[in-house]
Design a protein around this nucleic acid. Structure first.
Lengths: 188, 188
DNA sequence: ACACCTAACTAACGCCTGTTAGGGTAATAA
DNA sequence: TTATTACCCTAACAGGCGTTAGTTAGGTGT
């Protein structure tokens, strides 16, 4: 049921997905949804929360699964890759979240905030450590960098076409640019 | 009239802005809109097109206004800054475009495509030249880089708060990261 | 056999939507 | 003065929306 709703939300956005559409895709009638959920907001809130939880777990697992002696660059690349994979390959919930978050009523957004904050804190913690251990430049603003990073990754959803490349290849490009920039070096 | 529609679309998204809301904000009744426009789609299409045109002009002007001997890095920084300013400081049309493009009916999206392609071509042309003249690394994929750049800039709309910093300061951060990366250099 | 629970159904409610038809009013042109 | 144009209004239309109330069928436990 939630799976279906998430898929529709990802494909069509919040406003275009009515309870009747969800019901039809689930093979039941609209009114029957109210046996399982109390309202449309409740459904969409559940989808949003699951979306963040999935990407959060994916990202954390990808980092903790690394060997303990992995260097900072490797860790950051793994985190970027995990976020992008959750978005593109793994979960309709995560992609639906990114897609419709800006379209849902304020109250639903607010309900999703704690879960988001936790995920953001995970990133901030990671980036802070990389800064402290000298992997990152000392003048980076953690919050800004995190917003920029996640913003860039999430924006992928607007144009990504699986026929033109894999999520993994793209995540490598992203990491290359973020880590080293695009400027031709003079010192080589 | 279009100004008002663009502002509402930027603030509330496509689905939440009815013709009655636009009419009220304009001080007239809903039916009267049909004296000026043939349909809601026509209004939103006009807003979308104007949005791209504004950011396109801003970006092109920012680049051509530079002294002829400006180096590649300066040119790219100017383009980034112009896009971000159009999005944040200059135009409700541009921000509305970015905000609602993913929410409008397919037909309206399609109508906006030619204008978008022209703007994308402007970026591709700029980046190609920077690659040819050695400013950029030789292994960058122009299309990917453009999608990543514009995606990153546009994503700003989701979280930017004018109380926490200016668009110009942010554009400098963006340019710093894109040009040089965030990795601490060993050779300094 | 009886009571209960689960999961669905039908039918309707009030509300909001984009859109249209027909009418009015003030300014402008002949 | 008359005709025309520009602009807005009212009132309604059909259709979709989220939601609710009441009902029904099948399975489970006692």
């Amino acid at each position: 049921m939630l799976d279906i709703a998430a898929r529709l939300f990802r494909e069509q956005g919040y406003g275009s997905v009515s309870l009747r559409k969800i019901a039809e895709a689930a093979g039941i009638k609209a009114g029957s949804i109210y046996y399982h959920f109390g309202s449309k907001d409740e459904i969409v809130a559940a989808v949003l929360d699951a979306g963040i939880r999935v990407v959060h777990e994916n990202m954390r697992d990808a980092v903790t699964d690394l060997r303990a002696d992995a260097d900072g660059e490797t860790v950051l690349r793994a985190a970027i890759r995990a976020h992008l994979r959750a978005l593109i390959d793994v979960s309709d919930y995560t992609s639906a979240n990114v897609r419709i978050f800006g379209q849902v009523p304020q109250s639903v957004r607010d309900a999703n905030l704690p879960t988001r904050r936790a995920y953001e804190a995970e990133w901030d913690s990671l980036l802070s450590q990389l800064k402290k251990d000298g992997t990152l430049k000392q003048d980076v603003d953690i919050r800004r960098l995190r917003l920029m990073l996640i913003g860039t990754l999430n924006a992928t959803l607007d144009w990504f076409d699986p026929d033109r490349g894999s999520a993994d290849a793209l995540s490598r490009t992203y990491a290359d640019v973020f880590l080293n920039g695009i400027l031709q070096r003079q010192d080589t």
